[in-house]
Amino acid sequence: MPAEPRPGYTAVARVLRPHALRGELRVEVFSPTARNIQRGRPVYLRGVRRIVQRARPAGDDWIIKLSGLETRTDVEDLHGELIEALDSDVLRDDAESYFIHELIGLAVVTAAGEALGTLVEVLQPGANDVYVVHGARGEILVPAIGQVVQSIDLAAGRVVITPLPGMLDESP
């Protein structure tokens, strides 16, 4: 089961388990609006292009039906598989929405121009994401909140932050 999407693709959901008997899947969706798994959207599962035939919320998860998967047997071994969309087909929730894989590898600098390192991981503990940055100061945890993150520029490959008081003082 892949942990990361293939190059050129964005992971939009992960299969949790089969649902019922007619090839439906219970999935964890990676976007609050689930725009990329709505009826008629093209997605890829194990590299095979499929069309979302049905999608409905089920608590925190979604139940979806993909073309070509007709029975429970067809979907029994898909637990943990990523559902991907072509990068060019991905619908964003808004202009300031980013997928985690887009952030990994970006340079992180302060608004004053100090290079802090590279964003290596995004933690999702609850209220807000936390960016894990590795650099000369060691590991820095950056809360992904508007007060701290000033800009994210994917084209330039960098995140500009204004550290909270004391945020950098503890680094070596």
Rank of each mutant, 00 (worst) to 15 (best):
A3Y: 13
P7D: 01
T10L: 13
A20K: 14
G23L: 06
E28T: 12
S31A: 14
P32N: 11
P32F: 10
T33W: 12
R35C: 09
I37R: 05
Q38D: 05
R39L: 13
P42K: 14
P42W: 11
R49P: 04
I51G: 11
Q53F: 11
D61Y: 13
I63T: 05
K65T: 01
L66Y: 03
S67H: 07
G68K: 04
G68C: 04
L69Q: 00
R72C: 02
E76Y: 12
E76H: 11
G80P: 00
S88W: 12
V90M: 07
R92W: 00
A95P: 15
I100S: 08
H101W: 08
A107V: 13
V108I: 08
T110G: 07
T110V: 07
A111Q: 06
A111M: 06
A112M: 13
T118C: 13
E121G: 03
E121V: 02
D129S: 05
Y131I: 10
V133D: 05
H134R: 14
A136N: 11
R137E: 14
R137G: 15
L141D: 10
G146R: 04
V149T: 05
S151V: 04
I152W: 03
I152V: 10
I152D: 02
D153I: 00
L154Y: 06
A155L: 12
A156I: 09
R158H: 09
R158W: 09
V159C: 03
V160E: 11
I161W: 00
D169E: 12
